[in-house]
Simulated scan of single mutants.
Amino acid sequence: MRKVLSVLLVALLSSCAKPSDGPSAGSIRDAKFPHSNERVPVIELANAPAVTAAQPVNPHANDAGLTALRGAYNQQRLRPGDVIDVTVLDTGEEGLFSSTNSKTLNLGRFTVDQSGYVSMPFVGRQRVTDSTPEGLQSRIVAGLKGSSVNPQAVVTVVDKPSSAVIVSGAVKSPGKVALTARKEKVLDIISQSGGASVAPPAAMVTVVRGKERASAALDRIMNDEKQNIVLLPGDQVMVDGDAASFTALGAFKSAGEFQFEPGKLTLAQAVGRAGGLLDDRADARNVYIFRNQLIQVPQAASGGKGPVTMVTTAKPVIYHVNMKDASSIMLMQLFQMQKGDVIYASNAGLVDSAKLLTVYQKVPNTAAAPLPGAGSAQ
């Protein structure tokens, strides 16, 4: 009888579903996308772009970031709210001021309205937004040509209350920050606002300039000078403090969600943050990283007309780590964790089998059925 039970138990262990805390290594390698029959790629850690010297990972290779807003900076460009003083001159004998003792006339001070216009005598309503004082002078002279023989104009900027940027979001002192002739950049303004209130990897910086906007991670701006663009009056700087984190599941000593610390986080450090593998449960040969990898894909314009543009999308990928292999430990020090990564340590096969055995052992004994005729022997 015991031999029969043993054979049955072996059959159950080999063919039946075994209790487990998560997917087995085999089911991970057979994983498919929910809405298609396409397999989710499983890549060995040694072949991961993040650790392959020949193909260094650059998640922003086709992402311009804040450089999309780079441009020539001119502190003197006029903005809504600026106050200008306009004086016109006419040196001709039959000019605009020939009947007066003075050849100079101060037209007065004018404030650029929210639409970017000013209305001046003799010249009329002029759009001045993004013009320089010198450029406006030329337009005033052109407007006076019909009534003046040899007109000249002088435009002086009296006040520039618009020469500031607005900083909001995850900074210690949000508000308006004045710009100076030093041509402040993004990091200068964030510093003047008390600095970001979250770790750089967790902070996303967005600059809004008119109808345009561009974003980049704060740590990217700190490491790439091209992203640290010069700000213009009227820009809005928004710091999103969504905390970046990764999750450790399965046979780790401290499974759970962990926020990124300031600076970069490697896979080796992430495993350490989770307390390492459980010696009596984990299969060190089968540790996996689940990631939504950002990739660039071509997208045609609406209706199939116009240029094809590259858009960023996420595609799931799984990386496999054999922590029994000493070389994997070195590779783990090169593999950089990303926001939203999930590390999963699978159980060893014997652990799940032992669970099933425990379940079998806990099945209560049942009373044996009475033999036929036993009740009539009385």
Score class of each variant (00 low, 15 high):
Met1Trp: 05
Met1Tyr: 02
Arg2Ala: 13
Lys3Cys: 11
Leu8Glu: 05
Leu9Ala: 15
Leu13Phe: 12
Gly26Cys: 06
Ile28Ala: 12
Val42Tyr: 09
Glu44Trp: 04
Ala48Val: 11
Ala53His: 05
Pro56Glu: 01
Tyr73Glu: 09
Asn74Cys: 04
Gln75Ala: 15
Gln76Trp: 04
Glu93Ser: 15
Gly95Gln: 05
Leu96His: 07
Phe97Gln: 00
Ser98Gly: 02
Ser99His: 09
Ser99Asn: 15
Thr100Ala: 09
Lys103Ile: 03
Thr104Lys: 15
Thr104Leu: 14
Thr104Gly: 04
Leu107His: 02
Leu107Trp: 03
Gly108Val: 06
Arg109Pro: 00
Val112His: 00
Pro121His: 10
Thr129Asn: 12
Leu136Ser: 06
Gly143Thr: 10
Lys145Ile: 11
Gly146Thr: 12
Val149Cys: 02
Ala153Phe: 10
Val154Glu: 12
Val155Pro: 08
Lys160Ser: 12
Pro174Gly: 01
Val177Gln: 10
Arg182Glu: 13
Lys183Trp: 01
Leu187Trp: 01
Val205Tyr: 03
Gly210Lys: 12
Ala214Cys: 06
Ala216Gly: 04
Leu231Gln: 11
Gly234Val: 02
Asp235Arg: 13
Val237Phe: 08
Ala243Thr: 14
Lys253Phe: 06
Ser254Arg: 15
Phe258Met: 13
Phe260His: 09
Gly263Thr: 09
Thr266Cys: 08
Ala268Asp: 13
Gln269Gly: 04
Gly275Leu: 08
Ile289Leu: 15
Asn292Arg: 10
Gln293Asp: 14
Leu294Tyr: 08
Ile295Glu: 11
Gln299His: 12
Lys315Pro: 03
Pro316Ala: 02
His320Pro: 00
Val321Pro: 05
Asn322Thr: 10
Gly340Ile: 05
Gly349Ala: 11
Leu350Trp: 13
Val351Thr: 10
Val351Asn: 06
Ala354Ile: 14
Tyr360Gln: 10
Pro364Tyr: 03
Leu371Ala: 09
Gly373Thr: 11
